[in-house]
Nucleic acid binder design. Sequence first.
DNA 1: TGAAAGTTGTTATACTATAACATAACAACC
DNA 2: GGTTGTTATGTTATAGTATAACAACTTTCA
Lengths: 164, 164
Amino acid sequence: MPDITDQRFTPHDHRRCIKAAVAEATRICNERNGRLTEQRKRVLELVWGSHQPIGAYTILEQLRSEGFNGAPPTVYRALEFLLDHGLIHRIESLNAYTGCSHPGDEHTGQFLICSRCHEVTELDDPAVSRAITHSSASIGFAATHQVIEIRGLCSHCQALPHDQ
Amino acid sequence: MPDITDQRFTPHDHRRCIKAAVAEATRICNERNGRLTEQRKRVLELVWGSHQPIGAYTILEQLRSEGFNGAPPTVYRALEFLLDHGLIHRIESLNAYTGCSHPGDEHTGQFLICSRCHEVTELDDPAVSRAITHSSASIGFAATHQVIEIRGLCSHCQALPHDQ
DNA sequence: TGAAAGTTGTTATACTATAACATAACAACC
DNA sequence: GGTTGTTATGTTATAGTATAACAACTTTCA
């Protein structure tokens, strides 16, 4: 049964999400003297504007369609900045980027990727992190960073007929 | 303190590991009418021969140095076959491939990747899988496949001076 | 103002992966 | 044994992802 409170499937003005994300990012960057330049902000908006993880070259295309006349390194640099400041995440198994749903604090999220609609939900369940840290430690491995990307069907898509 | 029983750091004849892996793969392929051809077997050996995850193009280079005169698709096809039969794993965060340490049964491993020596240890801790499945289910997500890649320092490298 | 640091522009190239179609090897059957 | 359908491999070209290296510009702050 789909969770009708789920923002992704509730009719909502997504532009608000984007604005909120940018506002939050601005606050965070101010705090630590990171410069959220126009380009970086624009890339952040594009990442948030997509309901799915977005690739670097798709971002580049969109920038170009807006009159920007740049090359891949510009996009990768902006992405690097945003990653460094915890404002977006990279999804390794998709070579794509997605907005961080609670930026600011250091964390490596856990991502649920729907195989059908391709939306990504970020979880940050301490129980999962703990299980992994514990399991690693049991063989003497000191974990510093976790890549956790889960495939499956989101609640919304489970409720749909299979052939849709 | 390094675990001196750890096969990776115990002096051992790694050719034996490779032979064992190939023997096991042969058995599994026979069971299910998969054809472990010479090329596929050779790729499997190269994957096992590397103490670190190995990239497709590195495999290609090695094949070429043995007189093989092929192109990328050949390697990718062999890798696909080996993946399909659960004989190797792909490490998403490295775009590289590593031997499966207990092939045969369906599973998605958990990988501990040492940032220093780059060796990979495969874990299959049910507690971790369970934590993830449980956490996913709590928001209605039905997980089918897990990508879990943990960075950190293996016990061996922790024991070394930092600057080595 | 001028030096240092940070950001962006620009060109070229490296690395990873697959599409599409041709050929060859194999297995099973008549 | 030849025929046929299937699987595997060869081959060429190209798509997709990412970075190196160096030049030019901006910002900051002494």
